[in-house]
Amino acid sequence: MSRTSLQPLPSLILVFLIGLVACESRPPRDQSSGAQRLIVATTMTVLADLIGQVGGDKIQVKALVPPGGEVHTYQPTPEDIKNVAQAKIVFYNGAHLEEWIDETIRSAGKQDLQIVVLSQGLPVLSADGGEPNPHLWLDVANAKAYVEKIRDSLGKVDTANAAHYADRAKTYMAQLDELDKWILAEVEAIPKARRKLVTLHDAFPYFARRYGFTLHGVLVASPGKEPSARELTQLARRIKRAEVPAVFAEAQFNPKAMEVLARDTGVKVVTNLYNDSLSTGPEANSFMALMKHNVSQIVNALK
C-alpha cells in the first residue's frame, strides 16, 4: 500500500539492454565465400558497394551496419569486432559519422590493420561552425574521390591484384561520370524556384551544393534528438515562407513526424530517400541505384 516510487533506473537499464540484444545474433551479411579473397571491413552498406565495385571477386567486404541500420547511433556487436579483426583493411567514412568505429578497431586489437578514412583530405561542409557534415558521398564527385582512394588502398595492400583494381575502378568511375551527368540533366526538369530541400536529418548539403538545390531545414538536428516545439514551428514557417513544394524523410527513420508536418503545411511528403544505407529491396541496393532512386523521387516531387 505504500509503493509509489518511480523506477527510472530499471527503465534505463532496459533501454541499454535493447541496444545490446538488438545487435545480437544477426545472420552474416556477406554470403560470398572465397578461399583467398582479401577480407575488407567497412561501416556502411554504401561504402561496401563502392569497395565491392572496385574489388570485384578478389575481395570479400563486410559492412558492419546492416541495411537499414542507423549509422550515426549504431552500437557495434561482438561479431563486428570479430569481422574487423579478420580484415586486412578497414574503410570508413569519417567526419564524425561513425563515432563508434575507433573503439571497435581498438577492441579488435590488430596491429597490421590498414585503416582508410575515405573523407580525409576532401573539403567538408560544417553547419554554422558546428561539426563537419559527413554525407560527402551524395555528391558523385566525392564518391569518385572515394573510389580512387579505395583503388589505391586495395592496390597497396594486395599488390598482386593492383592492376585488377585499377581496371575496375576506371570502368566504375566512367559509370559515375555518366550518373553525375544524368543527375544534372534530370534536375533541369525542376523549375529553379522549386529546387528546395527539407529533409528529416541533415544528410543532403553536398548533394544540394553539387546539383543546385537550396536547403530549407531539417526536422531533427541530429539523429535521435527529439525536435522541440519551437524548432518544429520554425521549420513549418520556413516551409511556408519559402514555398517549399515537398518534404522528404529518409527511409531509416519513422516518417510520422514528417508526414504530420507535411499535412499541416500543405505540402507533399516523400518518405523513402536513402543516404547512409542501401535498401533491402531492389530500389536502392547499390550506390548507383540509390542515387538514381533519390533523384527520381526528388524530381517527381518538386517538378
Binding site: 539492454l17 540484444v21 531509416q252
Partner: peptide
Amino acid sequence: VLLMSTIQGYTVD
C-alpha cells in the same frame, strides 16, 4: 527486445 532483434534493419524508430 528479442523480437526487435529479429527484424532486419529499419528498426531505429
